[in-house]
Simulated scan of single mutants.
Amino acid sequence: MDAKPPFKDPDVAAKFASFPGAARQGLLTLRRLIYRTAETTPRVGPLEETLKWGQPAYLTPQTKSGSTIRLGLPKGGGFAIYTHCQTSILADFQNQFPDDFIYEGNRGIHFRDGEALPLDKLRLLVRHALTHHLKRRG
């Protein structure tokens, strides 16, 4: 499995290894996007990768700048990226791109296996989530 950066938590690595092949590739692409966005966004700091609700989750424990981002498999197939449902993160993104994605209410975006991901647009969502608390603090 081509995981960059390498997994630090063996439980997270095992979770990725358990995902079906095509979904795993999409989820690894989203994982790389999350890490790259964190590295290039001021005041985010290092990420913690862990499992929350059995899904890979990305937090900003040192700076507390962001809201948790999770990756997983929706019941209908494919793969997904999730934000905290009690924030406006996904609603704000959906206002920008109302017809570009398959939304799951105010919590997630679903993708089909093998689908090319619009990384430039998704980078905006990830950046918004990783800096959510910075905006609220002013």
Rank of each mutant, 00 (worst) to 15 (best):
M1I: 07
D2G: 11
K4E: 15
K4R: 13
P6H: 02
F7R: 04
K8N: 14
D9V: 10
D11S: 14
V12C: 11
A13F: 07
A13V: 01
A14H: 12
A14R: 15
K15A: 14
K15M: 04
K15P: 01
F16Q: 05
A17I: 00
A17T: 11
F19V: 15
P20L: 10
P20Q: 10
G21I: 01
G21W: 00
G21L: 06
A22Y: 00
A22D: 02
A22T: 12
Q25P: 00
G26K: 10
G26L: 06
G26N: 04
L27A: 07
T29W: 00
T29M: 01
T29I: 03
L30T: 07
L30N: 03
R31W: 10
R32P: 00
I34Y: 09
R36N: 14
R36M: 03
T37P: 10
T37A: 07
T40A: 15
T40G: 13
T41M: 10
R43H: 15
R43Q: 15
V44T: 12
V44E: 13
G45C: 11
P46C: 01
L47E: 11
L47T: 03
E48Q: 15
T50R: 11
L51S: 10
K52S: 14
K52N: 10
W53H: 11
Q55C: 13
P56A: 07
A57H: 07
Y58V: 05
Y58T: 07
T60H: 11
T60A: 03
K64N: 14
K64A: 06
G66Q: 09
G66V: 13
T68A: 10
T68E: 04
L71D: 07
G72D: 05
G72T: 04
L73V: 07
L73H: 09
L73W: 05
P74H: 03
P74V: 01
P74L: 01
G76L: 02
G76D: 12
G78S: 01
G78F: 11
F79S: 09
F79I: 12
I81H: 03
Y82R: 07
T83N: 08
H84E: 11
C85D: 04
C85P: 10
S88E: 14
A91C: 00
A91H: 01
D92Y: 07
F93E: 09
F93L: 12
Q94P: 09
Q94V: 00
Q96E: 15
Q96F: 08
P98F: 08
P98D: 05
D100E: 14
D100V: 01
D100N: 12
I102R: 13
Y103Q: 02
E104C: 02
G105H: 03
N106L: 05
N106F: 00
R107V: 05
G108L: 06
G108W: 13
H110I: 08
D113I: 02
D113N: 15
E115N: 04
E115C: 02
L117A: 05
P118K: 01
D120P: 01
K121V: 03
K121I: 04
K121R: 15
L122A: 08
R123Q: 14
L125E: 11
L125S: 07
L125I: 06
V126T: 02
R127P: 02
A129F: 02
A129C: 02
T131V: 09
T131S: 12
H132I: 00
R136D: 13
R136T: 13
R136Y: 01
R137E: 14
R137V: 13
G138M: 10
